[in-house]
């Protein structure tokens, strides 16, 4: 123990030039990240007068209590859970499928590998606007195609009816994010030693066994990391829903980030919005911590 402390102190003395160098960075992070975060958490326990930055009174957990009675918050929470679970599951399955296909050798593979990236580089707002047009009930191309194929008789109001709006935006979100999963999984697939597959077949294994024991094991670490990151990003996704439906119709696409935003900046209930934000932070925090722990363990194993 004593030895360890001594060596840490030594390390500090040895590396203090490095600490000096990172100080400005830390200061910046502290000011633009830590301070607003801490203030946001504190503000969820206070009230504030309209148009003022000053806290008025300490109210403890009152804003959190209010959330429990707030039907729209409950609905937003449910929507957010469905939104996250379905999108992340679809992203992974679809991403894996595409990555496996692109890992095969075929002519023009390079072109497809580049093409698949396109949705990911389109800015969120631009994608949302384009999809909003494609979904339009009277002149949207999606309705026209589906009618042409005879899959539907009458135009469907994709974003305008409570039954289809959330699902429709999920499709856009999946389209938008799947390239990232593909790229990451493809890189992992390419790092698998191909002789391992030969070994499976020599030992009499079949294709499924090769996939399960070699491919899936080979991309396990990357998969866990990707899924955890996608959970965090998807839960926090704001631009698509806000641009396409603003949480409507009838709150059917209301999700936590949008509800936090409108509570804060449309109704200026900053303290309640802070409380919603803290709840969202806690949920995301669980996965963020899981991500950090998993990474640390993996690094420890590797070393």
């Amino acid at each position: 123990m004593k030895k360890k402390r001594k060596s840490t102190g030594g390390a500090f003395r040895q590396n203090y030039y490095a600490y000096v160098l990172i100080t400005p960075g830390l200061l910046l992070v502290g000011i633009i990240l830590i301070y607003p975060l801490v203030r946001g958490i504190i503000s969820s326990f206070f009230t504030q007068a309209s148009g003022s930055m000053e806290f008025e009174a300490f109210v403890g957990l009152q804003h959190y209590q209010e959330l429990l009675d707030d039907k729209i918050f409950i609905q937003a929470m449910k929507n957010s859970l469905w939104w996250t679970v379905i999108i992340v599951a679809a992203l992974y399955l679809l991403g894996l499928g595409i990555a496996l296909l692109l890992n095969c050798s075929f002519k023009g593979r390079g072109i497809f590998r580049s093409l698949v990236l396109i949705p990911w580089v389109v800015p969120g707002i631009a994608a949302a606007m384009t999809w909003k047009w494609m979904y339009a009930s009277q002149y949207g191309i999606i309705n026209q195609i589906l009618q042409y194929l005879g899959l539907i008789d009458k135009s469907v109001d994709w974003l305008g009816s409570a039954g289809t709006a959330l699902g429709s935006i999920m499709v856009t979100a999946i389209w938008k994010d799947v390239p990232f999963v593909v790229v990451v999984l493809l890189a992992a697939l390419q790092s698998i030693d191909t002789t391992l597959y030969e070994a499976v077949y020599i030992d009499g294994g079949n294709a499924f066994q090769a996939f399960w024991h070699i491919t899936m094991v080979g991309i396990r670490d990357v998969s866990v990391t990707t899924i955890l990151l996608e959970i965090i990003w998807t839960f926090n996704k704001f631009d698509l829903v806000y641009t396409m439906t603003k949480g409507g119709p009838a709150n059917s696409t209301q999700i936590i980030p949008v509800y936090t935003y409108i509570t804060a900046f449309n109704f200026f209930k900053l303290n309640k919005a802070a409380a919603i934000g803290v709840v969202g932070l806690l949920i995301v925090g669980v996965f963020a911590v899981a991500y950090i722990i998993y990474n640390e363990r993996r690094e420890a194993q590797e070393s």
Partner: peptide, 21 residues
Amino acid sequence: MPAEITGMDFEAVLNSFTEGE
């Protein structure tokens, strides 16, 4: 009046009008 109005903002209404719907 079409029930699809729940998906129509003022621009969509204008489009429907100019399309003759």
